[in-house]
Design a protein around this nucleic acid. Structure first.
Length: 844
DNA sequence: GTACTCACG
DNA sequence: ACGTACGTGAGTACA
């Protein structure tokens, strides 16, 4: 309700507003017809309870509301609409009730919400003419004949919407119809019409919305009043409206910090742009505005250049390619300050402009200062630093279906304010960066990495659609077969994809024992189904179905949708999202392409080199996280294992099972030791390890004790890290990437434990991320320096994927591992494994 | 929009 | 007694 009001006000920017309510159950209509709305369900009591609060909120918002005894809201609206129309207002009626569309007229538009409030259908006289061939007022004549079920008046027997429309089109009105009713051919309908003439006229009156309700207020009383932010804030507090509260507090802050004016110069044409040609010194603030998240394809909206405290804006994006501006952006001497450098590089490249010399990225810096601040919105981010110059994009453009561009002035002001925000916040953020000891992390890792990632995204990777399409055919067939089998065994058809329906079949109809519950019902996840496998053959079929359905929907069909016209997939790496410093990949995610199971792994056949002279080449770090742990903890035993190049899991097995030689380690011991190693990296707990290995907690605890006894400095490191988190409020990677852990002090066991595990895991996962990021930067530079044609295409956390011309293979097989292993100097060696082939599948 | 499930490191 | 292994993204169902 509140949300809808906000969007309406935002969208229409009205001068006058009235919200009308129904007063009560009895109106002049019930006097005319006792059963009027007789079948209508009682207003739900919870809505009734809310009404006084809604009215209070309207008061605070400065909106007039009204209800009137004996009349419906419709009549108030109808009367006011006509009154406003006669005084040359543009009227918009917003309602969920189609009946009101009869009010549509010149200068009166009726917007009916459909499907909740997300979609609106606008009714105008033209629309009526086009769609129905009648006027809005003739809707009343139709209703007179067909009646209205929801308002419970009958109309003429046997006449429904279709017939009513035909009759109204033919005769024009009910009155005219009855003037000519005798001339009609003999029919049952004619009889009904004649017999029920009185009913028809009664219904006509019932359907007619009053436009002469005696209102005790004037049009001027509906003028929008300034809203009372203070009262609204306390109202939201009282009502526990958290989401609106935040917005209101922010808005009122905007009010209080009466925004400083901003002026800008509009660049209208090339001549205007050319006037910027004497710029030889930076910094230049540059804001490139796109409409949509995916900058590989989003529309260009405009740009702003901030130069010497002046702001130059334009929505003519071509002006970026005029020599004056292009020179500024491509100059390696003039420094540029931006928000989201990677987005800016890719966007400009689409215009043939190569961005160089960026030395400040507000998004990147604030992410490093605190990775929880991963807002991709300049305004919101600035507001969190108490800079109230720029609004958020949602405040300016709106959200969801309502998202749209403001007028040109609004847009230019927004862009200029964004540029000014980047400019004014810079010294503050850079100062904090230095205080955090993160200058190197920004200058030498994240900022150069953004350029490397941009190139990878722009190049993309070739994906053979035909390979996926062939898979799709086979998978569909398999799905069909399994589906039939499952329905047979279940004795009925149901939606296998619905956990709810599946749960009912398995645990209620087939009476299998429910192993685990979720918040909403039975769990049907893999581990549950695995334990039920032996109880009923249907379970295996469901597991098979799940596996294939996943491949089909997410990978085959999902990937097909993302192939561009150049036959390539251009993912976007999110560089400022994860809490640990890893990248993530979206649209599509190329970091979770199946590999563990053969069926899914086949997807990788579709990822191929650009041409037959090249191969896909892949190198991955072996056990980076454990090596990082060995380094950071300085544990001699663990370091020894890596220095001697032992199999780390077997080595751990020997330690925790007290064996004296590697030969004594059997497969099961190694498997368990591997799980313990993983657990350590995740921030071990007996509970988690027990669950993973399906052993008792006690036994898990024994493993852990044994592990820490054998790797004592690992234990020490874990304890120290938690202590540090408690003392400083954050933990750090080797390169000083930070993660804050406020929950470390929580009295809530669950939250505190989580924070403790995070404290142990983040420095390890994050340092591994630092390392591969350095490797990527060095790798790109090496390729460039050596003028190789090899392209770096993808990163999957501990793995880099390249496209390599065969004549460069020999060099690359040496170069990549060399660069990756030397990215950083640890107390233990880094090890890299490589492979290549004619597709990503073969590069294993 | 949230819950569930499952793909990856 | 408490009760979760760490970090992600996407498809589907359902309110």
């Amino acid at each position: 309700m509140k949300k809808m009001l906000d969007t309406l006000l935002e969208h229409h920017q009205p001068d006058n507003v009235l919200v009308a309510f129904d007063a009560g159950k009895t109106t002049f209509r019930t006097e005319m017809f006792a059963d009027y709305k007789g079948t209508r369900a009682k207003t739900p009591p919870e809505l009734l309870e809310q009404l006084p609060y809604i009215r209070e909120m309207l008061d605070h918002m400065g909106l007039k509301w009204h209800e009137q005894d004996n009349y419906e809201a419709d009549d108030i609206i109808g009367t006011l609409a006509k009154k406003a129309q006669s005084q040359d207002f543009e009227v918009i009626v917003v309602t969920g009730d189609k009946d009101l569309t009869q009010l549509a007229d010149t200068h009166i538009q009726v917007d009916v919400t459909v499907k909740g409030v997300n979609e609106i259908k606008s009714y105008t006289p033209d629309y009526f003419e086009e769609e129905l061939g009648i006027t809005p007022l003739q809707l009343i004549d139709m209703k007179a004949l067909m009646g209205d079920n929801s308002d419970n008046y009958p109309g003429v027997t046997k006449i429904g919407e279709k017939t009513a429309l035909k009759l109204v089109q033919k005769y024009g009105s009910v009155k005219e119809l009855y003037n000519h009713v005798d001339e009609m051919k003999k029919s049952k309908m004619k009889e009904n019409l004649i017999n029920e003439k009185e009913i028809a006229f009664l219904c006509y009156d019932l359907a007619t919305i009053k436009v002469d309700t005696p209102l005790d207020f004037d049009l001027a009383d509906t003028a929008l009043q300034p809203q009372n932010s203070e009262q609204l804030v306390s109202f939201y507090q009282k009502m526990n409206f958290k989401s609106f509260l935040d917005k209101e507090v922010l808005d009122s802050q905007f009010d209080q910090n009466t925004q400083e004016e901003i002026s800008y110069t509009v660049l209208n044409n090339e001549e205007d742009a050319q006037k910027l040609s004497d710029i030889v010194e930076g910094p230049v603030i540059f804001q490139l505005e796109l409409f949509g998240e995916n900058y590989h394809e989003a529309d260009f909206v405009g740009f702003c250049l901030g130069i010497n405290g002046k702001y130059f804006v334009s929505s003519n994006i071509e002006l970026l390619t005029t020599s004056a501006i292009k020179q500024i952006l491509e100059s390696s001497r003039i420094n540029k300050w931006v928000f989201d450098v990677k987005r800016t590089i890719v966007g400009l490249r689409r215009l043939g402009v190569t961005l160089r010399a960026v030395d400040f990225d507000m998004l990147l810096v604030s992410y490093l200062l605190n990775p929880d601040h991963n807002q991709n919105d300049l305004g919101e981010l600035a507001q969190s630093y108490n800079y109230f110059d720029a609004k958020s994009d949602v405040q300016v453009y709106g959200k969801g279906a309502k998202k749209s561009l403001p007028d040109e002035d609004g847009l230019f002001e927004h862009l200029s304010r964004k540029a000014r925000t980047i400019e004014s916040i810079k010294s503050d953020l850079m100062k904090q960066l230095t205080e955090h000891n993160q200058d190197q992390l920004f200058d030498e890792i994240e900022l150069p990495l953004a350029f490397v990632l941009a190139e990878m995204e722009i190049i993309g990777i070739k994906v053979q659609a035909s390979t996926l399409q062939e898979m799709s055919v086979i998978l569909s067939q398999q799905l069909q077969e399994i589906e039939t089998k499952i329905y047979e065994q279940a004795g009925e058809e149901f939606n296998i994809n619905s956990p709810k329906q599946l749960g009912q079949i398995l645990f209620e109809k087939l009476n299998l024992p429910p192993v685990k519950k979720t918040k909403t019902g039975y769990s049907t996840s893999v581990d549950v189904l695995e334990t039920l496998k032996k109880k009923s053959p249907i379970v295996s079929d469901i597991l098979d179905y799940r596996q294939i359905a996943k491949i089909q929907s997410t990978y085959v069909n999902g990937l097909l949708k993302t192939i561009h016209s150049d036959q390539r997939i251009h993912t976007r790496y999110l560089q400022t999202l994860t809490a640990t410093g890893r990248l993530s990949s979206v649209d599509p995610n190329l970091q979770n392409i199946p590999i563990r199971l053969e069926e899914g792994r086949k997807i990788r056949h579709a990822f191929v080199p650009s041409n037959e002279e090249s191969v896909i080449f892949s190198s991955d770090y072996s056990q980076v996280e454990l090596r990082v742990l060995a380094h950071m903890s300085e544990d001699e035993n663990m370091q020894e294992a890596f220095k001697s190049d032992y199999d780390i899991h077997s080595h751990t097995a020997m330690k925790i099972f007290n064996l004296s030689s590697p030969e004594e380690v059997d497969g099961n011991m190694r498997r368990q030791a591997k799980a313990v190693n993983f657990g350590i990296v995740y921030g071990i707990s007996d509970y988690g390890l027990a669950k993973n290995l399906d052993i008792s907690r006690k036994q898990a605890q024994t493993f852990i004790d044994q592990y820490f006894a054998q790797y004592p400095k690992v234990k020490q490191f874990m304890d120290d890290t938690i202590d540090q988190a408690k003392a400083d409020g954050y933990v750090e990677t080797l390169m000083h990437r930070r993660r804050y852990l406020p929950d470390i002090h929580s009295r809530n066991f669950h939250l505190r434990s989580f924070a403790e595990r995070t404290a142990m895991n983040s420095p390890i996962q994050g340092t591994a991320a630092d390392i591969i990021k350095i490797a990527m930067i060095n790798m790109q530079k090496a390729l460039q320096d050596k003028q190789l044609r090899t392209k770096m295409l993808l990163q999957v956390h501990d793995e880099l994927i390249f496209e390599v011309p065969k004549d460069e293979l020999a060099i690359i097989e040496e170069l990549v591992p060399q660069v990756m292993t030397s990215a950083i100097q640890l107390d233990v060696p880094l090890v890299v494994d490589s492979s290549y082939g004619q597709s990503w599948y073969q590069a294993k």
